[in-house]
């Protein structure tokens, strides 16, 4: 399937990504080639087949879930140690209210 420039721009917006015009042109060629290969799946008969989202999921039972008890987690200091910007124990981001 051929994908249009407008579609790629739309997907980039959804994914919070940016591409230069030059990157977009190269991207479209590779992307279309990959999609063309993937299209082969449409020929597989999946009538009445249930999807699988976890190959071992059926074997994960309630006994595996830990009991709902509060445990010590990260200290605030640790959670913030990699933040590009923090203030008063919180992550700091650019102003969003005008």
């Amino acid at each position: 399937m051929a994908i249009t420039l407008e579609e790629v721009r739309h997907i980039a917006r959804l994914a919070n990504l940016q591409f230069s015009e030059e990157e977009l042109q190269a991207f479209i060629v590779q992307f279309s080639k990959i999609l063309e290969h993937i299209e082969q799946l449409s020929q597989v008969d999946t009538q009445g087949v249930e999807p699988t989202y976890h190959a071992v999921a059926g074997k994960i039972d309630r006994e595996n879930a830990r009991s709902d008890v509060i445990h010590a987690s990260f200290l605030q200091e640790k959670a913030l140690m990699n933040a590009p910007e923090s203030e008063e124990g919180q992550f700091r981001v650019p102003k969003v209210i005008r």
């Binding site: 799946l41 449409s42 597989v44 999946t46 087949v49 999807p51 699988t52 190959a55």
Partner: peptide
């Protein structure tokens, strides 16, 4: 969804 069904197969 299609891929997830082929995964089952």
């Amino acid at each position: 969804l299609k891929a997830s069904k082929v995964r089952t197969l």
